[in-house]
């Protein structure tokens, strides 16, 4: 890739926490290889303290993000799609490295990721119509239920689908006003950090999405037992780890999204389940005036 006589300028892959790109507090890193076993880069190996810092950042970002109008959140998600589109070539190259797919297939996957973001962006001000209701009650009241975000959501991203899979688990969490701490695919974390660069330049407030790279088995239990995390998406957890995490999550009654059984096709229609899994229902009783 480098012309003769020119020094290679290589990217340092760091974490994305609170809108900044810190190295792991522990100073550790691990080698990431391509699907063919070639060395690609050293990625940060986040520690439990990085996870803790990420939760703090997500908690701090929650009031602002959940308080933003649905319209505004949709606009920002759409803006993320715009930024992603502008980096199409870079992501395609990373997918070729990570998954060993053809150039054509990689391009399709990036397109699908952009489309997925646009699709979820549209849901921001419509999910209320789907999950809200005017309830018939036996009294002189308007009784209205509206969906509210759950809070800070820990997301274990799927090991396969380093971009499309990642987008498909992040977008439904944040579109409704949650903030999240994401443990990226352990096998292919580089597109996640490049996605962090996209998020950092697309009006998304710092801390709404925090990306950690490292060992899933090391990070997920700390997030599952963290008392300031309100829900956990275990999509990327192997079965045994998922069971242990779900047990830990019970301590503060986290909402848990279990990993799917069998292979997931991220190109398929995602449905609304991932959005509705991280919503609470607020019901208001309002007296009917005279």
């Amino acid at each position: 890739m480098t012309e003769p006589g020119r020094l290679a300028v290589r990217k340092t892959y760091k974490l994305y926490i609170g809108g900044a790109f810190p190295r792991s507090e522990s100073g550790r890193s691990y080698a990431v290889t391509s699907s063919k076993g070639q060395f690609l880069a050293n990625a940060s190996r986040a520690s439990r303290k990085d996870a803790r810092d990420a939760v703090t950042a997500a908690r701090k970002a929650f009031p602002g993000w959940s308080g933003a109008t649905a319209y505004n959140r949709g606009q920002i998600l759409y803006r993320v799609a715009e930024m992603l589109e502008g980096r199409r070539a870079q992501f395609a190259a990373e997918l070729i490295d990570a998954d060993g797919v053809s150039a054509r297939k990689a391009g399709e996957l990036v397109d699908a990721a952009v489309d997925r973001l646009v699709w979820y962006a549209g849901w921001s001000d419509k999910i209320g119509a789907l999950r809200g209701a005017a309830n018939p009650v036996a009294g002189p009241y308007f009784n209205l239920s509206t969906p509210e975000p759950t809070g800070v959501v820990a997301v274990v991203a799927p090991p396969m689908g380093p971009l499309l899979g990642l987008i498909s688990v992040i977008a439904p969490v944040i579109v409704s006003g949650n903030t999240c701490v994401v443990v990226a695919s352990e096998r292919a974390p580089l597109p996640a950090i490049t996605l962090g660069e996209v998020l950092a330049t697309s009006d998304l407030p710092g801390g709404v999405v925090n990306l950690l790279t490292g060992r899933v088995a090391e990070l997920a239990p700390w997030l599952a037992s963290h008392m300031d995390v309100n829900a956990i998406d275990l999509t990327g957890c192997p079965e045994e780890l998922a069971v242990a995490c779900e047990r830990d999550a019970a301590e503060n009654l986290k909402r848990v999204l279990r990993p799917a059984t069998g292979k997931v096709d991220w190109l398929a229609d995602p449905g609304v389940e991932r959005m509705t899994a991280f919503l609470e229902t607020k019901t208001v009783w309002h007296p009917i005036g005279v």
């Binding site: 803790r52 939760v55 700390w222 037992s225 963290h226 008392m227 300031d228 301590e251 503060n252």
Partner: peptide, 9 residues
């Protein structure tokens, strides 16, 4: 307890 605490409690 060995787990991170939250301010809600």
């Amino acid at each position: 307890t060995g787990r991170y605490a939250g301010p809600d409690y």
